[in-house]
Amino acid sequence: MATAKTYDPEALASQRRQRRNARLLRHLGLHALLIALLGIMLYPVIWMIFSALRPEQEIFGEMGFIPTNWTLENFTSGWQLYGDLTFTTFYVNSFIICALAILGNLIACSMAAYAFARLNFRLKWLLFAAMLTTIMLPIHVQLIPQYIFFLNIGWVNTILPLVVPKFLATDAFFIFLMVQFMRSLPSELEQAAVVDGASYWQRYWRIILPLTMPALATTAVFTFINTYNDFFSQLIYLTDTDAMTVPVALRLFLDPSGGQSSFGGLFAMVLVSIGPVLGFFIASQRLLTKGIATQGFK
């Protein structure tokens, strides 16, 4: 009988094997496809890594993907940009600006956000709207008036134009982000604090700020990435070579006007400069997850 055959354990086992093989094959195919796609996406990065590790004249001359001659020379020659200038100076400059910008944004934006999210004052919605419109203002419109303003107060060629505005809550995007986040926090927590006689400051500092950790982490990560990658304002405000930062210095390897470019040094230094962004992102990703986990009580 046909049904008897269905219960044949051997046939069942072989069917299961077949299904498993088919599934394995499907998974293998899928993974192979994904790995191939990943390879295509990472190809330029891998090419850059190998280029940084081969002698300069072989970067475009050699056809092979993997270098035949390995060298670390590009790293040493690239690090020493010219004269006494090294990337040590540029990294120190970049990190100082980034650290101050993060500090400024975290303090000032969270305070502004707290006011917009939790306090009641006159013209609050108008001010909120005004703040949001600053996001829509293109940077090119502000560029020259800002430059002239900072020039007149003697701040050009110092890091002040790059960090002081951060302490005045000028990044409307982060304020908006935190406002939205704070609004989602249960108001009972704050009311309980009011019952205990907590002042505005105490409510902000002890209740709201610790709970806003995920938004703070996002702000810190994005401020770091934005500031670290910011080329143009650092170019125009920090004119002296000693005050230069990493993104500005990276542009000094190439000469599109017909002079000699040093691609070896460029690739090596680009590779090194990716490090901090990647490291900061990985480190703060944990913070992000932790922040989200504390949200679980809701």
Binding site: L143, I144, Y147, I148, L151, N152, V156, F231, F232, L235, I236, T239, D240, T241, V248, R251, L252, L254, D255, P256, S257
Partner: peptide, 25 residues
Amino acid sequence: ISRENADWEPYWQRLTIQTTGNNQP
């Protein structure tokens, strides 16, 4: 002499902005 150098394109962008503030080298 303080050195102010840049790559070709940013060089002209910066010079243009500096001239608007009368702050060219």
